[in-house]
Amino acid sequence: MNLQAVKAIYIYEMSRFFRTLMQSFISPVISTSLYFVVFGTAIASRIQEVEGVSYGAFIVPGLIMLSVMTQATSNASFGIYFPKFIGTIYELLSAPISFFEVVLGYVGAAATKAFIIGAIILATAFLFVDLEIQYPLAMLAFLVMTCLSFSLLGFIIGIWAQNFEQLQLIPLIVITPLVFLGGSFYSVSMLPPIWQTITLFNPVVYLISGFRWSFFGHADVSLGMSLGAIGVFTLACMGIIWWIFKTGYRIRQ
């Protein structure tokens, strides 16, 4: 195992994050604050409580998930797309490293960045609402798993993308709608029965539900289903990445 290479990729990627520290921090803090103002204040005046939790607090797990999923995806996709775009991918292909080590470095860094942003949003949320986390360790575990699985997805998008438009396409037309329709700002039980059934086909529902359970002890779907969904999603992404490196899809001619 070439751990030095994994470390080198990880540090190199993280240095990009710290180089743009202010943008990295300010952007999620401002957008979260705006969500709290719009959803937490305006809508909370109409919806007092959901599942026994104040609406302002109820949306916190969804808000964190929204940012973490989009950040993990965009960081990982950009991380591997950028070397392709500027041509420095030659170094990765000619270095004595395995595909597993490449993924570990890039996905590890992207997941770390997403985790830091998730933590910042959580800290920001405490400024707006009273919040108590019932299962902090489970919350951390869900957060880490989400960061990792969506970074894997981002890595796939970064390899697949052949231009910057494609890089933005999947997050824009797939991830954001799925997160918004995945119960970020409402409980699935608030929907009409037919939509409740349709919603269950959205994998993000399981992630948000499990994450919300760790905060409030209440979930839309069972905890086992949530863990299973993350597991299947992660394995599917890993399978696709394994295939990418085996065939050299869009990286090795």
Partner: peptide, 24 residues
Amino acid sequence: PQEISLEPFETVENTVRFSRGLFG
């Protein structure tokens, strides 16, 4: 390589150090 492929925003030292690390 033939093409000048370098990350423009990185420093000389970091980019060279990165290459050494990649090779273990």
